[in-house]
Design a binder for these strands. Structure first.
Lengths: 146, 146
DNA sequence: TATTGTTATACTCTATAACTATA
DNA sequence: TATAGTTATAGAGTATAACAATA
């Protein structure tokens, strides 16, 4: 047992990493209040930017949302001119979704803006600490892919 | 420039950590699909559990939501019997919000359930890798507190 | 008949504005 | 008059169910 007002045993390895992850994620999310795009919208543009064109179903699976939800998000991004829908040549039920040049530009700008706060925070750490976080990021991706 | 379908320079230190953090946070969040409580509701119970009683405004500030939003969340948790509202003795405009025994129990149970997936994932890593993540969690908390 | 995408509709969470009670 | 909390109402995002088009 610890002090009177901290009765929870939040000291396990997993709890510590879970709480740290949620806290940093929340902090990063609050930092992007400057731009108007939602997390979900940006995640779609980022996925298209990194992995190339997707069908609607592929995007929905990747982002773990339903097809109607993804459809709404894609509609919004299409209206904004950030992506295009093109019927698939070989299977005309499918729709290929791809970034426009403007979409690519908005990804680059959003990444730049979102990362600037984190870059400043990392700059205050030692080279050893930054290297540790770099390795940790790889492990976190590995764990998340499980 | 890199390969044709990966035009973004998402390879900076900050981008890598940001993406890994969001990805792991999303994975952890999806893993708690078994319980009915939302992230926001659980965060309130966890804050009360760790830091003791709060007023409504303090909870809203801590969770970075508006007072009406927090009010709704607190209403829901009060109906479920997880917390109590008590008018403040010295300033009767304020309301002190505190966990019930049932609230404390549900925090402990939820933490246990949410962490079990992560514990299994961590068990597949080497002791060195787990130690690295332990240190990284401390650094992430430090960065988030900035 | 199965699959892909879309539309219709409802629910949850959050926000702003307006209101009540107390300082 | 200012502050803490609450209520009223609206907007964003997500879900399930139903539908259309194609394989």
């Amino acid at each position: 047992m610890s002090s009177p007002h901290t009765p929870a045993d939040t000291t396990t390895e997993a709890s510590s990493l879970r709480m740290a992850t949620f806290r940093l994620a929340r902090r990063l999310r609050s930092q992007r209040a400057v731009d108007t795009m939602s997390d979900g919208q940006f995640a779609v543009l980022a996925a298209l930017n990194v992995h190339g064109a997707h069908t609607l179903g592929e995007l929905a699976d990747r982002e773990r949302v339903t097809a109607p939800s993804m459809n709404r998000t894609v509609n919004c991004l299409e209206e904004s001119g950030y992506l295009t829908r093109t019927p698939d040549e070989t299977d005309r039920r499918k729709v290929n979704i791809a970034l426009t040049d403007e979409g690519r530009a908005v990804v680059a700008e959003t990444v730049r803006r979102r990362d600037s706060w984190l870059e400043q925070a990392l700059a205050e750490l030692s080279p050893q600490q930054r290297d540790l976080l770099r390795q940790a990021a790889d492990l976190m991706r590995e764990v998340a892919a499980r």
